[in-house]
Computed example of a mutant assay.
Amino acid sequence: MLTKHLPSAAGCTLHEAGRDWDAIRVPRSLGLAAMSILGSRCGAVVEDRTVLYYFVPTGTAAQWQDDSSRALGAGVTVTIPPARRTQGPGPHWRITPGEGRWVTNPQALAAALEDARPRESAA
């Protein structure tokens, strides 16, 4: 359930993280690769220009330890597009939330981000 609603002209609303979910903000290319790795295990995902937002259980942000992403918890707002908005420009759903499909398991997300991260050559 989403709580704080501040509507925009595009129909988007701002919702505070840390209430119903925390969010993990990931650079777009890395986030798309992780989304592919997660497959059906992926929860809802919002794309906003150069980043993707994954939603994880409340409290995850305080324990998140991935340097390629940023955890967003209490006191931070996330732009949520209307359910019908599945294309840009502007914030839109890459994966729309559904019954039981709002959050992604944080351990699975961390593993997918690790697998998706480009490896440095050992030269």
Results as ranks from 00 to 15, higher is better:
90 G>D: 11
93 W>N: 06
119 R>M: 10
90 G>I: 03
93 W>Q: 09
54 Y>W: 09
87 Q>G: 04
113 L>G: 11
97 P>E: 00
79 T>G: 09
58 T>N: 13
108 A>N: 14
112 A>S: 12
88 G>T: 06
53 Y>F: 12
79 T>V: 14
52 L>A: 00
75 G>K: 06
92 H>E: 06
57 P>V: 00
96 T>N: 02
66 D>A: 10
56 V>Y: 08
121 S>N: 12
90 G>M: 06
102 W>P: 00
101 R>C: 01
86 T>Y: 02
92 H>I: 06
64 W>Y: 07
82 P>Q: 03
56 V>N: 08
99 E>P: 07
71 A>F: 09
62 A>W: 10
110 A>C: 05
99 E>S: 07
97 P>Q: 00
109 L>N: 11
80 I>D: 08
113 L>A: 10
91 P>G: 10
99 E>C: 04
97 P>L: 00
117 R>S: 15
67 D>C: 06
96 T>W: 00
80 I>A: 10
114 E>H: 14
111 A>V: 04
52 L>N: 03
89 P>T: 00
85 R>M: 05
118 P>D: 08
120 E>G: 14
52 L>G: 01
89 P>L: 01
86 T>P: 03
60 T>R: 09
83 A>Y: 03
91 P>K: 05
87 Q>P: 01
117 R>K: 15
115 D>M: 15
85 R>G: 02
55 F>D: 06
81 P>T: 07
115 D>K: 15
118 P>K: 10
56 V>A: 14
117 R>C: 11
60 T>Y: 08
60 T>P: 07
100 G>P: 01
90 G>H: 11
119 R>V: 11
113 L>H: 11
64 W>K: 04
79 T>L: 14
99 E>F: 02
90 G>V: 02
111 A>C: 05
57 P>H: 10
66 D>Y: 12
93 W>G: 05
73 G>I: 00
88 G>V: 03
54 Y>E: 03
95 I>D: 04
106 P>C: 00
97 P>G: 01
57 P>S: 06
117 R>W: 15
106 P>Q: 05
71 A>E: 04
107 Q>G: 09
88 G>M: 03
90 G>P: 09
95 I>Q: 11
96 T>V: 15
68 S>H: 13
88 G>Q: 07
100 G>F: 00
92 H>Q: 03
74 A>Y: 13
70 R>F: 09
73 G>A: 04
